[in-house]
Amino acid sequence: MDVSGDWNLIILPRVINDYDLDFAKEVMSLPEGKTMIQCYQCSYCTASCPVHNYWDERYNSRHFIHLARLGLIDELQKRADVMWRCVSCHKCTHRCPKGVLVEEVLKAILKTMAKKGLIDEYPSKKFDKFFTESVLEYGRIEDGELLFGWIEKQGYNVVKDPILKKPIPFLGETPEWLKQLVMKPIKSMNISFLVLNAKHMLFHPRTKNWNKFKQVLRKVVQEEGGLT
């Protein structure tokens, strides 16, 4: 009698029974996913990829392209926890001998997975959405507000000013890494810049003539389902 439990492995479905070719079709129907078809699996992209090299070898752009092209959904889903880890350094796209826009294709794959409900909302997307919301609202972003707004979203207890209800930097809870990251440049910063930054945080810089354009942008984003 097998007491190791290993025999159970044998009944797990390992055989690929079919391809989901509609998935690839959908990826390639996106303008940024079009070039996926050109890949010949040389792995120049993966060999250049810092995420693959220095973080986790399961992040493998070439492999994702292969899986997406054949529509091996379960394999893609197995890697859902690492697939969003791209840092957009564009070494892959830059070096691809076949002219595949690898970085864009990977994003197209992620978008398609999200659209089909094959992946939960991944951490990077949360920030992407937060950032894009800010752009859509004001036309411009403000570094400080973005940063501390995000920190607030992460569950830190930030202190807000009573009138405009905007987070005040470093007064409330602040992650240790951020303190270290910011304190050094701030010490050497011209005081007038600090004043300007504070002003910007309170009064978010806006693009004028933005409202009409904003409506169109929102419509387009909604069509693509980007913020859902």
């Binding site: 303008p31 957009s88 992407d128 894009t132 752009v135 693009t207 984003v221 069509e223």
Partner: peptide, 22 residues
């Protein structure tokens, strides 16, 4: 005058046409 944000990597990951529009 009166430029807007380029969208950076973040908005490009969310919306293709929106980023192009920006």
């Amino acid at each position: 005058e009166d430029y807007n944000c380029c969208g950076a990597m973040e908005s490009k990951n969310v919306t293709f046409m929106g980023t192009l529009l920006l």
